[in-house]
């Protein structure tokens, strides 16, 4: 009978886990939708900023603009975007793996890390990598200001010649079931210049150079914002799929346990019947 009781308890605990994973899946699905809406809203701003830069950049000399000038790369900054929480399949591990590969290629002492999310900052701090700054606990109520602050830190590092190149490693949202692992160079900024003679008839106030200089950080900030949103939607999508799988697995386990439970119950009944019949026969004799 002890077997029956323990089986019953296991069935109960697996079904409560199933309930939790099911709820987590629904929550994740809602968050994906929210993050995607935010991404949609940020698009016009980013597109217009980029267009404007492409139009003005060919008209100014790039030498005076720090954020576009290329220099010899001796120190590289990697911005690694992961989540604060797990339960999202291989979402974090794939980012960390690519980052490690990249660090190995460049040399551990030549890389400065900016970690976003607890997962990457814990992983790299524990292993004595050069983590310059970590940002976490912001995903829950992420605002544009967070992205703007992060962008400002790496812009400052680039301007002060602490790093000569800045790359971002993150998951880009593709579909609910798949993400693209991306590595993008953000600094120095590369632009395909868009030459249009009409732009020369524009009035620029105070002047072209200072307009470009104020546009470039804006572009980087909104780019950071979008990359964070991409990563956030990928995270929640990955969590949704992971939790969906967990729910399915729980269902499977419950089915198996129920079968086992019924077998055990039937066996117990059969033994009891045999005992009764045996006892009755003994009385007749």
């Amino acid at each position: 009978m002890a077997n029956l009781k323990s089986l019953q308890e296991r069935i109960k605990s697996v079904s409560s886990i199933q309930q939790v994973t099911k709820a987590m899946k629904m929550v994740a699905a809602a968050k994906v939708k929210k993050a995607q809406d935010k991404m949609e809203i940020s698009r016009p701003y980013s597109k217009n900023t980029q267009d404007m830069i492409c139009r003005i950049l060919p008209q100014v000399s790039n030498d005076n603009i720090a954020l576009v000038s290329k220099r010899k790369v001796s120190k590289t900054a990697l911005i690694i975007i992961t989540s604060d929480r797990g339960f999202a399949g291989s979402f974090n591990s794939s980012v960390i793996r690519l980052a490690e590969k990249e660090i190995e290629k460049l040399g551990k002492d030549k890389v400065q890390l900016f970690c976003l999310g607890k997962k990457s900052s814990e992983y790299f701090s524990k292993r004595n990598y050069n983590v310059v700054q970590s940002f976490y606990d912001f995903w829950k109520d992420m605002t544009f200001d967070t992205a703007s602050d992060i962008a400002e830190t790496f812009i400052a590092a680039f301007k002060n010649h602490e790093v000569d190149e800045v790359n971002v490693i993150y998951n880009r949202f593709k579909t609910l079931a798949s993400q693209d692992l991306m590595m993008e160079k953000v600094l120095p900024i590369d632009f395909t210049e868009d030459y249009n003679p009409k732009d020369y008839n524009y009035d620029y106030e105070p002047n072209k150079e200072s307009i470009v200089k104020s546009l470039l950080p804006k572009h980087l900030k909104v780019q950071m914002w979008q990359q964070m949103l991409e990563s956030y939607s990928s995270e929640e999508a990955a969590r949704m799929i992971a939790m969906d799988n967990a729910t399915e697995n729980a269902k499977e386990i419950i089915k198996e346990l129920k079968l086992e439970f019924n077998k055990a119950r039937q066996a117990a009944i059969t033994t009891e019947m045999l005992e009764i019949v045996g006892g009755a026969e003994a009385l007749v004799d």
């Binding site: 404007m52 003005i56 524009y202 009035d203 620029y204 106030e205 105070p206 307009i211």
Partner: peptide, 19 residues
């Protein structure tokens, strides 16, 4: 609010980009 003081825009303003 322009960098050098407030300015107004009406129809047929010159093409311009301003901080």
């Amino acid at each position: 609010p322009g960098t050098e003081g407030y300015f107004g825009i009406m129809k047929n303003h010159t093409n311009s980009i301003l901080n």
